[in-house]
Amino acid sequence: MPIQPGSSPGPAAPAPGVPATRFAVPGRIAVAHRTAVEWQTATLTEIRRETPHAATFRLAVPEWAGHLPGQHLMLRLTAQDGYAAQRHYSIASAPDDSGHIELTLDRVPDGEVSGWFHTVARPGDTIEVRGPLSGFFAWPGDRPALLLGAGSGVVPLMSMLRHHRARGLTVPLRMLVSARSPGELIYARELGAETTPVFTRSAPAGMPVGRMTAAHVAPLLETQPSDGWEAYVCGSNGFAEHASRLLVEAGQPVERIRIERFG
């Protein structure tokens, strides 16, 4: 997914166990030149169905340099005739030393790459990847985080949540995620008390149905950590603008909202 970053706060150090990076402009973690430009061969090792339209693909990347939660990579498929298709995809897995990363892909109508993954790909297939890319949307695990996502916009946020759990971090983290229905809520089995779901088409009995509103966002900001919240918003252009506006109206400083949009 193409990234359209906005403004950002000051720099912070990476959390223990996260690959070392260097810091460039305030709030943006610099990406190593080699990992950003060199292609590596990845082998598909596992496919897990998440929803009727989304699945997680686990890749073995022996030379993977490590990533920070929220970063993405470039993926390239090359046909036998030499035709190549490239796409940006957020990394769903938390940083670890397993030599594996995970991507969760929605099947996009007429999508060349997502269509291949959902209909053709099998364990043992190889693809090319380069990354990790973009330090703007990365969360090192060092600051209180508000995570707002819609649809597959939950993917980079899940990397943050998984990192928070795996490291036993005590820094506050809260997530608000929007889906059309419970059956289309990606990672539903993994979500816990830190997550509030919003359903726009159908919901369990007793839950309202509709778009994310101020009533969902304002309670997240009622309790302020001493150094404030860092907000991460991921989704379509429409969702990103709507959710960001709700955050600002609830009192979140605009310079502390990071946005990743589907393009």
Rank of each mutant, 00 (worst) to 15 (best):
P2D: 15
I3E: 10
Q4K: 12
S7K: 06
S8K: 01
P9S: 01
A12H: 13
A13T: 15
P14K: 02
A15M: 10
G17I: 13
V18A: 13
R22I: 07
I29R: 14
A30V: 05
V31S: 02
V31H: 01
A32L: 09
H33F: 06
R34I: 11
A36I: 04
V37D: 10
W39V: 01
W39I: 03
T41C: 02
A42R: 00
T45C: 10
A54G: 09
A55N: 05
F57L: 09
L59I: 01
P62S: 04
G66T: 01
L68T: 13
P69F: 12
P69D: 09
L75W: 06
R76S: 10
R76I: 02
R76G: 00
L77R: 04
T78R: 12
D81G: 08
D81I: 04
D81N: 15
G82T: 01
A85S: 10
A85L: 01
R87A: 00
P95L: 02
S98K: 09
G99I: 11
I101L: 15
E102H: 05
D106W: 13
G111C: 09
G111R: 04
V113G: 02
G115H: 07
W116E: 00
T119I: 04
A121I: 01
A121F: 08
P123H: 12
P123W: 15
G124N: 13
T126I: 06
I127L: 14
G135Y: 09
P140T: 03
P140L: 02
G141E: 01
L147D: 00
L148R: 12
S152I: 09
G153K: 00
G153T: 03
R165Y: 11
A166I: 03
V171F: 10
L173K: 07
L173E: 02
V177H: 14
A179C: 09
A179T: 05
R180N: 01
S181G: 08
P182Q: 07
G183Q: 12
G183H: 14
L185A: 07
R189E: 15
T195K: 05
V198E: 03
T200A: 08
R201N: 03
A203W: 07
A205I: 04
G206Q: 05
M207E: 09
P208K: 14
A215E: 09
V217F: 06
A218M: 11
L221W: 15
E222G: 10
Y232A: 02
G235S: 05
S236E: 02
A240T: 14
A240C: 15
R245I: 07
V248E: 15
A250T: 02
G251M: 08
V254F: 09
R256G: 08
I257M: 02
R258T: 08
R258C: 05
I259W: 14
R261G: 15
F262W: 14
